[in-house]
């Protein structure tokens, strides 16, 4: 066996191993609508500016909390891994709502069965208008086979965030 064959064998084996390992981490299916919601969430992190507290300290990380939903959770985390600088100023951390102690943005895909204290002070994003959660600031809806979102201005103002005009232009304002 020549060195070339050995090199090729090593490269092929490495490729197969890489694929097998990545297969092991694969999760269940995510619908295109949910993928779009995940991508919108990523963009919200770019176009919403959170206040820093206290102001003279280094910028604190942003905590994004997801209601337990394995495939969506996995997909959104992969988006964050690909684009960790979605928010140009702060580090991003993603956690499940049940594990979180503090949330800056919380995404609900179903109406929670109980109160979540971590949601206090967090921008609440709802998967659809079929989901209920008090103080919801952004609500997804479907219009003409396209995913759209509504911003509840009174609720989003409570958090002292600055919403980019680009985001407001595309939203239905309430």
């Amino acid at each position: 066996m020549t060195w070339t064959l050995k090199t090729c064998s090593v490269l092929l084996t490495t490729l197969v191993l890489a694929i097998v390992l990545s297969t092991a981490s694969a999760d269940d299916a995510v619908s295109k609508q949910d993928k779009l919601k995940a991508a919108y969430l990523l963009n919200f992190l770019t176009f919403i500016e959170w206040p820093n507290t206290p102001e003279d300290k280094p910028l604190t990380p942003l905590y994004i909390c997801l209601q337990d939903s394995a495939p969506f959770d996995q997909f959104f985390r992969s988006l964050i891994n690909i684009k960790p600088g979605a928010n140009s100023k702060r580090e991003l951390y993603v956690s499940r709502l049940s594990d979180a102690t503090h949330c800056d943005l919380t995404y609900f895909h179903r109406t929670p069965s109980s109160e979540n204290s971590q949601v206090e002070g967090s921008i609440v994003v709802l998967s659809s208008d079929q989901v209920s959660q008090k103080n919801a600031a952004i609500i997804f809806y479907v219009n003409d086979n396209k995913l759209r979102f509504e911003i509840v201005m009174n609720n989003i103002r409570k958090y002292g965030v600055t919403v980019s005009s680009e985001l407001l232009k595309l939203a239905k304002l309430k």
Binding site: L36, A39, N43, L79, K146, E166, L170
Partner: peptide, 15 residues
Amino acid sequence: FAEMSLTDLFAQSIN
């Protein structure tokens, strides 16, 4: 999906 802008997302069908 990570590379899609708001405008890209707005143009996407959910189908």
